[in-house]
Amino acid sequence: MRLQAAAVKLGYGDNVIVDGLDLGIEAGTVTTIIGPNGCGKSTLLRALGRLLKPQGGEVLLDGKRIDRIPTREVAKILGVLPQAPVAPEGLTVADLVGRGRHPHQTWYRQWSSDDEGAVAAALAMTGLADLAERPLDELSGGQRQRAWISMALAQGTDLLLLDEPTTFLDLAHQVEVLELVRHLHQEAGRTVVMVLHDLNLAARYADRLVAMRAGRVIASGTPHEVLTEELLREVFELDAKVIPDPVAGTPLVVPIGRPHHAHSAASASEIS
């Protein structure tokens, strides 16, 4: 178990969002957390990445309490990319990715050939080397997200936590980013935990799904085990058909959406 939440209680002040949750992340897997808005998935991811201190319970990184490991050491093992991160204006891709080397630098030794190699490798892996000197503001949404992932890669961690890495991206760019995640996992053996909203993409790109509702884990397992019609009803209150994805064979969720369905059925019968 690389990363583990044991009976964690999470929240902000008096507002408790998650209480008594257990979750284990195995090495070399891509785990995707799904669930309705406000179910606590981002909160859980923040706690796993020690961005949020649990009010109870503990988070274990390689069996050790994450809050007892110096934060700089954690930063060499685990990288977190928050939702919709911000960058100062004019920051170039190379500068952003270079900042991923922060945990490996000290104030008296700022830049080494190791840093340079890691930045170049990260840019090459995300296909951004040609854009290295371009300001981040000038990139497309998909390129920008790839640049942020490059920064997390340059950090050189084999555990990556990504909070909704596809937010604000169109479908083509979502696929582009998730293909990159899969590549990192398959070619570089990284362990990835991410939060995604799109269930079909989650099913296609994850080894394991964790379905949450109201701060609790309702189901976890392979996409086939988790993404069932009953679960969608329980977790999302959504009536849907689950059919095999014609491309990948993973579960494909087709929402029924009752009122619209009734309406279109009626108009269809009128026409015929």
């Binding site: 050491e73 930063a75 928050p82 911000v86 900042r99 630098q105 700022q110």
Partner: peptide, 23 residues
């Protein structure tokens, strides 16, 4: 000058700075 690298990390937002190991 001691503060400069930390401030660089912080300019990416507090979450990213924390994730980069900055206090």
């Amino acid at each position: 000058m001691v503060n400069a690298p930390g401030l660089n990390a912080l300019s990416l937002g507090e979450d990213v700075a924390r994730s980069l190991g900055q206090n």
